[in-house]
């Protein structure tokens, strides 16, 4: 049974307004438990609209969202449960920090769940550990942290709700390469340690290739492709047609192919080096 499904989900917004570009039409998708799904698509493809349906922030005009076997709009209680089962972390989450201390900020979600004090304490410490925040930072004001630390503290605030599905909307936006790699590494290890499902909305095909197990491609409010990284990235022509840029190494392989040297496909530097070396490395 999938942990998260959308059945015929449609959301149109007000027709004729600029928001119409955010509409989604008849989305059918099943996310299996434990997957790390990269969601890609250019701005206005509807990917942000889709993920806001998954935790019940937006109500579909048609169709159902099923989380953990339950229709989240069945009754008020189910909708509220969905908020905590599906943790959504927005873009630039550091701008939602508001408490006096990092500790209090991370405990905001668990507190809203109505958990007991000891449980909250346990969860805050665990979440801080997942995102690599040192214990001494917990008593500091969130506004005194560095940019990267702020972002990780904000993500910890969502992780502390211990959602079954964690959705991160552009978690690496605006970070430098070091900060970016750190967040990606964190997401990967979080998933490995907790076994929970992670959805990663991203503009970066490179980032998705690095850590995702599956890729969901959105275009014009619809699901264009959904499959493993290999399956999706091998359609480089189709991806480019909808305005997505494949990683540079994939382009290298495309050029090689058009010159009569078919080495298959690669989308990370590691994989590409491996293929080329196996082809020509032995005789060197």
């Amino acid at each position: 049974m999938p942990i998260l499904s959308a059945n015929g989900v449609t959301h149109l917004y007000n027709k004729g307004t600029p928001s119409q570009s955010k509409a989604i039409y008849d989305i059918n998708v099943d996310i299996e438990e434990g997957e790390l799904v990269g969601i890609i698509g250019h701005t206005g493809s509807g990917k942000s609209t889709l993920v806001q349906h998954f935790n019940g922030l937006l109500k579909p005009e048609n169709g159902q969202i099923i989380v953990d076997g339950k229709d989240i709009w069945k009754d008020k209680k189910s909708t509220r449960e969905a908020r905590f089962k599906v943790g959504l972390c927005f873009q630039y989450p550091e701008y939602q920090l508001f408490e006096e201390t990092v500790y209090k900020d991370i405990s905001f979600g668990p507190k809203n769940m109505g958990l007991k004090e000891e449980e909250i304490h346990k969860r805050v410490l665990l979440a801080a550990e997942y995102v690599g925040l040192k214990k001494e930072l917990l008593e500091k004001s969130p506004f005194d942290l560095s940019g990267g630390e702020k972002r990780r503290a904000a993500i910890a605030g969502v992780i502390a709700m211990q959602p079954k599905v964690l959705i991160l909307d552009e978690p690496t936006a605006g970070l430098d390469p070091k900060g970016r790699d750190r967040i990606l590494e964190m997401i990967k290890s979080y998933r490995e340690r907790t076994g929970s499902t992670v959805l990663l909305v991203s503009h970066s095909m490179e980032d998705v290739a690095k850590i995702a197990t599956k890729v969901l491609v959105m275009n014009k409010g619809q699901v264009e492709m959904y499959g493993t990284v290999d399956e999706v990235y091998s359609h480089s022509v189709e991806l480019r047609n909808i305005g997505l840029n494949v990683p540079q190494v994939s382009k290298v392989f495309e050029i090689l192919k058009s010159n009569g040297m078919n080495l298959g496909s690669a989308y990370t530097v590691e994989k590409a080096a491996e293929i080329i070396l196996s082809k020509g490395g032995a005789s060197v």
Binding site: D176, P177, K178, E206, P247, V252, V269, A272, A273, I276
Partner: peptide, 13 residues
């Protein structure tokens, strides 16, 4: 803590 273009990195590797 910086990147290089993937093509450069591939050649380097």
């Amino acid at each position: 803590g910086l990147d290089v273009p993937q093509a450069t990195e591939l050649a380097y590797r």
